[in-house]
Simulated scan of single mutants.
Amino acid sequence: MTRRRLLALLAAAPLAAAGWFGWARRRNPYYGGPPSDHFDGLRFFHPEQPPDKSPLAAFQALQLTEKAPWPESWPSPFADKPPARVTGSRLRVTAVGHATHLIQAAGLNILTDPVWSERCSPVSFAGPKRVCAPGVAFDDLPKIDVILLSHNHYDHLDVATLSRLVARDDPRIVTALGNDVIVRANDRRARVEAYDWGDRVILGDGVTAALTVACHWSARGVTDRRKALWTAFAIDAGSAGRLYFAGDSGLFSGAHFRHAAELHGPFRLAILPIGAYEPRWFMKDQHLNPAEAVEAFGLLRAEQAIGCHWGVFRLTAEGIDAPVIALQAALREKSIPPERFRALRPGEVWEA
Rank of each mutant, 00 (worst) to 15 (best):
D158E: 11
T87V: 13
P71Y: 09
I103K: 11
V115W: 01
L243E: 01
Y30M: 05
S54F: 10
F257P: 07
P273L: 06
Q286A: 14
V181T: 13
E351D: 12
A326D: 12
L288F: 12
G19Q: 10
G311L: 02
L149N: 13
T316Q: 12
A261W: 12
D248K: 11
C215G: 05
L15Y: 11
P279I: 13
F282P: 09
D285M: 07
D169G: 01
A185Y: 04
G19K: 08
T87G: 04
G41Q: 02
P51N: 10
F297A: 07
V324N: 07
D187M: 08
D196P: 01
H98P: 02
L288I: 03
H259Y: 05
W20D: 15
L102M: 10
R43D: 00
L288G: 02
H151D: 15
G275L: 07
E193L: 12
H151V: 00
T65P: 01
R191M: 09
D113N: 15
V115S: 12
D80A: 15
S163V: 03
R225L: 14
C120M: 01
I271V: 15
H287N: 12
P69K: 09
M1H: 11
A167M: 01
A219F: 01
R314M: 03
T87C: 08
A11V: 01
S335N: 11
K143D: 10
A228G: 00
L141E: 10
R220P: 00
V159W: 02
A219C: 02
V213M: 11
W217K: 08
I144Q: 06
D169P: 01
H101M: 13
I271A: 09
P35Q: 04
D196E: 10
I235Q: 06
V136H: 09
R226S: 15
C215R: 04
V213A: 14
L9S: 14
L269C: 07
P323I: 07
A210R: 14
F257V: 04
A13S: 15
T94K: 00
G221E: 04
I271C: 13
H151W: 14
L327A: 03
